[in-house]
Design a protein around this nucleic acid. Sequence first.
DNA 1: AATAATTTTTAGACAAATCTAAAAATTTGT
DNA 2: ACAAATTTTTAGATTTGTCTAAAAATTATT
Lengths: 218, 218
Amino acid sequence: MTHSEENYIKTIFHLEKNEKKGISTNAIAKQMETKPSSVTDMIKKLSEKNLVNYKKYQGVSLTTLGRKTALGIVRKHRLWEVFLVEKLDFSWDEVHEVAEQLEHIKSEKLIDKLDKLLDFPQFDPHGDPIPTKNGEFKEREKKLLSKLPILSKGICVGVKDSSAPFLKFLDKHSIALGQVVKVLEKEEFDGSFIIEINDKRMHISNQIASNLYLKIDK
Amino acid sequence: MTHSEENYIKTIFHLEKNEKKGISTNAIAKQMETKPSSVTDMIKKLSEKNLVNYKKYQGVSLTTLGRKTALGIVRKHRLWEVFLVEKLDFSWDEVHEVAEQLEHIKSEKLIDKLDKLLDFPQFDPHGDPIPTKNGEFKEREKKLLSKLPILSKGICVGVKDSSAPFLKFLDKHSIALGQVVKVLEKEEFDGSFIIEINDKRMHISNQIASNLYLKIDK
DNA sequence: AATAATTTTTAGACAAATCTAAAAATTTGT
DNA sequence: ACAAATTTTTAGATTTGTCTAAAAATTATT
Ligand SMILES: [Mn+2]
Ligand SMILES: [Mn+2]
Ligand SMILES: [Mn+2]
Ligand SMILES: [Mn+2]
């Protein structure tokens, strides 16, 4: 598989998470910053190779083989992100770009050994799950802070938006994965929240609350 | 720079080590397992970009910029090889192929951090020197075992042929870098040698002796 | 249900990197 | 020095992945 083919497969995989129907040509084009006509061309090729199901004008979905392939790429991407943070002291806002390149390196042995070096991590630096060698993929139970009832308590386990600006914002305000959070108040007017984090009260906008995942204490 | 351009630059760099004159189109084509006409095309592009000096029919040589670029790629290749051996337990005959891919990853920070993680190694698993960040490149003083006078003693510091079959052969016979070697006898008839290594006498063919580098004790 | 807007596909073009076949230049051998 | 052999370049084709512009199909609106 070429880099380009892998990127398409990965994009379709991610789009399928929030979309039960076939993925549209336009959605893929927008995500990949390319033109719909280019997407159609590539989809035909992927369809030839049995990686996607495709009927004209009907959108596209991954085949079993396509899904397996996507999981392999996502696995590599996320393991490399862990490596960059854990072994090379990258911060979590710097890893994605480099992982986009590293995910295309072809060597099963390399990725198995890397997995071992990192002690078989289950989640990447952004809290996203890492598929196993066999393609098993367990999403953690987690909810957006913005969706929680008042007085819930939980642990910060992930981000929905993992763009560098958002991650830097979190760093700046000392919000990190693993921290205990309590939702104190919601301001209905603008959807902002008052939370307790690091034993400190803090006011966060709705935009922030809508991009932080918590695991709820039972 | 594309992967392909980088591969050409690196090939020319390696060919320049054993050739004072311009590097011929055919030599590049043979090394890269491609056709001379493809080489001509690429050379023109590299020349446009000021990476090589080129006059029709006169062979090619790296410019200062080209050499600097080549050193960067070689640095990355060799650092990744060290990483694979030191951190991921690859054997020295398995690293080259993967390093051929990894050398094209673009991230200055990545390579600097990798260098640090590995504690700034000076040589790769095959005994080849690793250029510094600034492109300094110190060849170690070393001689082929086959070129040494009888009764010289030295330490095995490198291999000329770093193909997997040769490296596996050395493994099989417990010959490794760092070992002390004494040249006991040379058989003029077939150019083979009797050496002492690991406190054991051993008979090695001329082919082996012509591909092992020793650093001579003073 | 007909028309308008949008989405998707097709047709044709282009840049990058390669190839084959043929032409041009250089090198070798007598 | 000249012909033969070799090397190198050119010309033209091919594949991959992309693009623009136009046609076709689908979806939304009145
Ligand atoms: Mn990422
Ligand atoms: Mn991630
Ligand atoms: Mn190598
Ligand atoms: Mn090496």
